[in-house]
Design a binder for these strands. Sequence first.
DNA 1: ATATATTGGATATATTTTATCCTTGATATT
DNA 2: AATATCAAGGATAAAATATATCCAATATAT
Lengths: 170, 170
Amino acid sequence: MKLSEGVEWGLHCVSVLAGLPSGATLPTKTLAEYHGLSETYLSKHLQALTNARIIESVPGPRGGYRLLRLPEEITLLEIVEAIDGREPLFRCTEIRQRGPLACEASAQAYRLPCGIHVAMARAEKAWREALKTQTLADIVNQYTQDVDPQQQQRRNQWMSERLRSAPKKS
Amino acid sequence: MKLSEGVEWGLHCVSVLAGLPSGATLPTKTLAEYHGLSETYLSKHLQALTNARIIESVPGPRGGYRLLRLPEEITLLEIVEAIDGREPLFRCTEIRQRGPLACEASAQAYRLPCGIHVAMARAEKAWREALKTQTLADIVNQYTQDVDPQQQQRRNQWMSERLRSAPKKS
DNA sequence: ATATATTGGATATATTTTATCCTTGATATT
DNA sequence: AATATCAAGGATAAAATATATCCAATATAT
Ligand code: FES
Ligand code: FES
């Protein structure tokens, strides 16, 4: 019962991208180096975020990734689902239908959903709702507050040395 | 990102045990047969529920398992955590501390929790709360309603043929 | 042309989940 | 006392996922 480690990677990467000037991009290499991550594997997660239309890729020299939408319009749920998938946490395999008694003449009863399944789904909905009501903007606010001024300046310079500018796509 | 399949097994088993007369037990074999599950593997999950003090084991002939507490006093969260563990869904590996910039002189800043970590923990708390506020009694009510009368009677007879009585422990 | 990027498929490795087996100890029954 | 039935728990084994790398293909600024 756990989310893939890539979720933490993805959340941190989009947070960094959210702090960039409009239109600017960062390549995989920079994002991986900044967080101390495997470049090739991070690339997979960035692809997933691209397919989910959360970030956008700019190929070629001076290319990289940038946000496709405003941080206010990107929910944490989208990011989590892009990387970790959309399958439910709780997997109901309908074991109520598997016993020696179940099979016969009770198809009728099984049109009603299993009470256990319903209860677990209720909790899962609460989780998804909580992720849906927090946006990337909410996180970035806290994210940049944490750092002390000196550290933040060093970070900004490090970033600006690696920044790319690229024209907006169609 | 998914819970172990054993969670569904455990929830269904304790629901069955909750419907038994006071003091009565069912052996692993019967629980496995009723749900169409592997007996040896189900045994592992029942052990976990025993260690979590949700159910109780009675060794020896005519032994088996029974609830250790009233269904009203057993939350779904307890059952889920007994089988699937208590580790958080989201694993923060502190990647913010791993980059080339992070290591130096910023230990101060890292005493504050990471904003991403906090946001994910908030959603997780919503999930746990939703599981905590639903008890086994809530489920059993729905569980037994689903079955039509004829089916329910067949089920009751099947169970009563396999029921065990055993004295309460100290 | 060339160098820098992403894309996506193929593949390898590590870890976790699922499952079985077997020995030990407890306890009703005979 | 002997026997049969049951859970407990350790040691593996097998299967499924998660993690990670590599490479050929494509796009594009210079
Ligand atoms: S049958 Fe799947 S949760 Fe009840
Ligand atoms: S460092 Fe782990 S979530 Fe930010």
